[in-house]
Each structure stands twice: as C-alpha cells, then as structure tokens.
Amino acid sequence: MIEVRGLVHVYPDGTRAVDGVHLRIGDGEQIAIIGQNGSGKSTLVRHFNGLLRPTLGDVLIDGQLTAGLRVAALAANVGLAFQDPDRQIFAGQVRTEVAFGPHNLGLRSAALETAVTKALDAVGLTEQGERNPYDLGFSNRKLLALASILAMGTPTVVLDEPTTGQDLRGVERVRRIVADLAAAGRTVVAISHDMRFVAEAFPRVVVMRAGRVILDGTPGEVFAEANWGALAGTYVEPQLASRVGVRLGLGSTPTDAALIEALVKRPG
C-alpha cells in the first residue's frame, strides 16, 4: 500500500509542485492521475520510489517510511516507467535492455531469462528481442521501456504517460497490460492526458490541480456533469462518451460501453 500524508514538494527554484497531497492507494488498485501540465502529477509519483524526497509530509510504502530508504532499495517495490524512453535505453540489444532492471534486483540465469521473455511477450516485442533498440520506432521504444519495468516484477508499477505517441493498437496493448497487472493483483498508477484510456482502463481517477488533489473517485463520479467546471479548471475535457451521455440526458457514461448500454436501455 502507498500512503501519502500531507506531502509538499518545493523545487530549489521555489516552485511548489506538490502542495499538500493526502492519498492512499491500496494493494491491487489501478488508479489514473490526471490534470493539466504542471499540476504536480509527475512530481507526486517520483516520491513513490524515492527519486524525490518530501519537503514536508511523509510517503509510506507498505507502512514503511521512504525517508530512510535508498532508491535502489525502493525500486524493488515500485517500478517507474518514464515518459521519454530515450532517457533510459542504453543497451545494444532489446533483451539486454529489459534484463537491466531485474538483474539489478538480483535475478540471475533462468529466472532472469523468464522475466525478460514474459515482459517482452506482454508488450508484443518478442520477435524483436535480438534487435538494437534504436532500430525500433518511437512507439516500440516506448513499449520496450515499459517492458523493462514490467520485467522487474515490482508489486507496484507507475506509468508516466504510457499512451503518448501510441496508435490505437499501442493504446489497446497498454490497456491490456494494465488489465493483466490488475488480474495479477499488482498495483498500477498511471499519469495520462488520454481521458478515453483513463476512463476505460482505471476504476479510480485522481484529478490534480496546482499541486493538490481536487477530485478522487470512479470514472463515473469524476466525469459526471457536476464536475465539469472543476475539470475545465485544470484543462481536462471529459471524453466524448461522457459528453454524449450528458447531452442525451443519460447520466454519467464515462466509457463507450457504458454509453451504448445506456442508449440500449433508453425508454422509447
């Protein structure tokens, strides 16, 4: 479980990126964090594995304060996939790149090979295992970066904008990865600007604005008409399904499936 208590983070230049966040993320939960650029999402999740340390407040992983723990130790609990894959890819071969994380966590020989193979399977890059990462296109490099976090087998996986630069098939793949992680009982935290992806893949949505959490609930609750003003305040536009549902007086229909179901059940 991840517990954030009164977290404040001020960068050296004085920017108050996170300004008093309380958040509790249970084991096996899948949550999406949304909000305008600069609302503190990335700063918040970088506290989960100790890359950033609180200016004020506490972060606890499984009841243990992160304050005294090193990033290398926290990495065994929380895997964080960054937005830009090119800031992490260094190996000459896809499999070596994926093996880096689990090897650092102490996996060796057969166990390591299995972890790498499973992760590559999950992102659909099995065939590319022997290739040079830089021969892959951007979207595949992004999936490679994701695989290299999955291979670490951490109980919690944090994804920073996993669907950026992905076409429909790529987004579908990320959605399936999140579903697989959920089925395996692992916790997933994702930052995203893709509201459709958020509403379809995550049972819980947290909305941030100016370093604070302003909304926290199911997609049905968060994207309900009553919250549209608050969402607009952090430059979030509800996805089409929600807008159509409200326009037709069907209530909150955050996903395509919910909208279609509401339309079918519509009297008359």
Binding site: R70, A72, A75, F82, Q88, I89, A91, F100, L105
Partner: peptide, 30 residues
C-alpha cells in the same frame, strides 16, 4: 533525467568502485 530513470530500475550509484564503474554505461549511453 537519465540518472533518475536508471536509479528507478535499481541502478545503485553508491557502493564499491567496481559497482560505480559498471554504472557508467547505462548513464552515459542514453
């Protein structure tokens, strides 16, 4: 940023000299 993403994958930048030398490639490569 590179250092952050490698530390997030468990790269230990502290410890013995040999450990640190091995950490150079993942940091300088990207």
């Amino acid at each position: 940023e590179v250092a952050d993403s490698q530390r997030a994958r468990g790269l230990n930048t502290e410890g013995s000299v040999w450990r640190r030398v091995r950490g150079v490639v993942p940091l300088v490569g990207p």
